[in-house]
């Protein structure tokens, strides 16, 4: 029985191997014929691994995005904790109000009582809310300290908000400094997300602690990554720090979340999280292809595409 089963599996494997070989040969022929295409795809896309998991908002979403980092997982937990407590409070008040409205309506209770004091109950409704607050404050303070712990990062990315694009400078990769613009609505291609996809995403390694140093070159912006639990204002003249560790290769999105002028809704953030090997490959490719941003592109509208970053090597 066992042998038979093993043999049949072998057979299936052989067949599929044959098919695969055939497919590869055909593809190779196709690629050789289409010479231009061959030249382009000869450099493999190092961020391809991030395309397999896309953590974007979905239709009729009613809760946080799937947690892409331990920080967001903690925020998610505390949110549920606090929200359930508060739902209990709202439910309790609703029950009391419902009872009062039914039991003490004029038709059922024509003669009103004249009670205006009850010391015990007044103490109870001071003490019980205080206890509830203590139950909220303790885990909440833990989260604040956790979020503030930006020490010992593997790498640091300096994020600079501009009207209306982001600039990412990799502190550990000298010379790697590029801009990231939203893809305009009329240039959206299949697979891209309108209002969230950008021309040059931020690329980060998974499983490593990444520190963000956030600042602005002009007005206030907001560096907001809901699926990673990161948010800080970008303030000119001030550097704020935050951090994340992305657990899973994938594409994560964020948006500008502090009003910054007419393009406020047109400067999303896209992050491609890839394995370390791919990240290192990407830094080489990026260094070769992106020139350093030392000049500001024009601020005119409609939005300029990222010509600096796309300059030839």
């Amino acid at each position: 029985m066992n042998n038979n089963a093993g043999r049949s599996i072998m057979k299936r494997r052989d067949v599929s191997a044959l098919r695969l070989t055939g497919l590869l040969v055909l593809t190779a022929i196709f690629l050789v014929q289409a010479h231009g295409a061959w030249a382009q795809s000869s450099a493999p896309n190092p961020t391809a691994a991030a395309n397999q998991y896309v953590d974007a908002p979905h239709d009729w979403q009613m809760w946080f995005p799937a947690a892409g980092s331990p920080m967001q997982a903690r925020i998610d937990w505390l949110m549920k904790y606090v929200l359930w407590i508060m739902a209990g409070v709202v439910g309790f008040v609703a029950l009391l109000m419902g009872y009062v409205m039914v039991r003490f309506r004029a038709s059922r209770n024509p003669k009103a009582s004249k009670t205006t004091h009850n010391t015990l109950i007044e103490i109870v409704w001071i003490v019980v809310p205080c206890l509830i607050l203590v139950a909220i404050i303790v885990p909440s303070i833990n989260l604040i300290y956790y979020e503030a712990d930006t020490g010992n990062p593997y790498m640091t990315v300096t994020v600079t908000g501009h009207q209306w694009y982001w600039e990412y400078k990799y502190n550990s990769v000298p010379g790697l400094d590029y801009t990231s613009y939203m893809i305009p609505d009329d240039e959206i291609k299949p697979g891209e997300i309108r209002r969230l996809s950008v021309d040059h995403p931020m690329v980060l390694p998974v499983g490593k602690k990444i520190r963000f140093v956030i600042t602005s070159a002009d007005v206030l912006h907001g560096f907001y990554l809901p699926s990673l639990g990161v948010q800080k204002y970008a303030i000119p003249g001030t550097e704020l720090t935050s951090w994340t560790t992305i657990t899973k290769p994938g594409t994560y999105y964020g948006q500008c979340n502090q009003i910054c002028g007419l393009g406020h809704d047109s400067m999303p953030i896209e992050i491609k999280a890839v394995p370390m090997k791919d990240y290192l490959a990407w830094t080489k490719q990026a260094l070769a292809n992106y020139t350093q941003n030392d000049a500001r592109p024009p601020l005119s509208s409609p939005m300029p595409r990222n010509q600096l970053a796309d300059a030839t090597p």
Partner: peptide, 16 residues
Amino acid sequence: LAGMPRRYPDYADAFA
């Protein structure tokens, strides 16, 4: 909760 920022005149289609 889904992450839509305020003061946006246009938004990602998922928020529709």
